[in-house]
């Protein structure tokens, strides 16, 4: 079972060196314990482009698809037996990156 752990941010700042170091330690643990699938940090929402190709021509729009104070700053995809395991890992991830996170299951 895989879960998406989204990192929620409302500041403009990237991770500090301390946060980055804590994230690295957490990532190593995910790998060592077989929970690691993938993870990454994302560029600022202002770097996003929205594409709509449902009509005749593809329309490109500058900016994120939703304007809000909070945005997705990065994510983990983890492998976990059930939600209890995923929640424990996500709690540690939140501590490591010093931000709120959201857990959602993949279908």
């Amino acid at each position: 079972m895989q879960y998406l752990v989204s990192v929620i941010d409302d500041t403009a700042g990237l991770a500090t060196p301390d946060e980055q170091a804590a994230i690295d330690v957490f990532n190593d643990r995910l790998k060592a314990e077989g929970h690691w699938v993938f993870a990454g940090g994302l560029g600022a929402p202002a770097t996003a482009t929205v594409i709509d190709n449902r009509g005749d021509v593809a329309v490109f729009t500058d900016g994120p698809f939703i304007e809000s104070k909070e945005y997705l700053a990065g994510f983990w995809i983890i492998e976990a037996a059930d939600l209890d395991v995923a929640l424990k890992l996500a709690a540690e991830g939140s501590r490591a990156c010093n931000r709120r996170v959201e857990v959602r299951p993949f279908l």
């Binding site: 079972m1 037996a81 059930d82 939600l83 209890d84 857990v103 959602r104 299951p105 279908l107």
Partner: peptide
Amino acid sequence: KAARIPYRVPSAED
């Protein structure tokens, strides 16, 4: 069902 909330008694620690 979708998020797999487990059906069990929590561990002694929890």
